[in-house]
Write a protein that binds this DNA or RNA. Structure first.
Lengths: 131, 131
DNA sequence: GTTAAATTGTTATAATATAACATTTTGTAA
DNA sequence: TTACAAAATGTTATATTATAACAATTTAAC
């Protein structure tokens, strides 16, 4: 488990302490006081952090969250629940699910080495608000 | 099953006959000769086509493909296989998988009404090329 | 210490997507 | 068959997300 570079650490810390997924330009705005001035500096750090599995990209939202799993390695099997009302995102850590999907084989004979799953719905709070 | 409007039909036809996912501005370029001149015209048609389930958005690619299922309704349960080499995308239509995911409940008690799953790997052709 | 790899800094620009507002077309119900 | 609402269209401008290209600096490994 390698150490993070300066920019990577700054950006990871910000994402890690955020209760919600952060977007690249929101990150940029928040780290400008720490010397990171350009979008590319943010995107490069994000790319690296995704690559080493410290963060995940929520594809449907173009936003990033810190990995919730203690064994934070290269992420080949990711699943998230997303509340369509409050936009809260939670990483799903369910071994039954990951076993099922990791071993899933479709009839096309393709060999999968990675997947990303996003569930959408209403979280408990938002369900009760609407009732 | 409602009829499509003029712009929706033009854009659906283009996507439907494409062997690969199409991006919004590639669509725009291709339909300009048919009178669709502005990005917003494309995005509005895409939004509607996604909403009624005629096409799907491949989130990791920002691209759109026609629904492969004959029962082309509002799409609450989508799964795709994506070749990371040739970028071929195929919709997965596997009842075991969709049953498993539709009935999936996580410990957070959230009620899901939709999911999107993207598998990544190498398709048969690309596997044999690399061997 | 030298060197290769990784990271950083910087400017510019490409690619993706929506806001705002006016107009036209379509469906439907009196 | 008209009138009304909903949907779709047209248009300009702009917001948001992401990468290209190139130079300099830092880090890690030998």
């Amino acid at each position: 488990m390698q150490n993070l570079s300066k920019n990577q650490q700054i950006i990871f810390d910000l994402i890690d302490k955020s209760p919600e997924p952060l977007k690249a330009y929101s990150i940029l705005f928040n780290v400008q006081k720490r010397g990171i001035k350009a979008p590319l500096q943010v995107y490069r750090a994000l790319d690296k952090l995704v690559e080493i599995g410290k963060i995940h990209k929520i594809e449907s939202r173009n936003a990033f969250i810190a990995c919730q799993n203690s064994s934070c390695q290269i992420s080949k099997a990711t699943a998230f629940s997303i509340c369509e009302s409050c936009e809260k995102v939670t990483e799903i850590n369910n071994s039954n699910l990951s076993k099922y999907l990791t071993s899933f084989k479709d009839k096309n004979g393709m060999k999968y080495n990675k997947y990303n799953l996003e569930f959408f719905g209403l979280c408990k709070k938002c369900v009760s608000k609407k009732s």
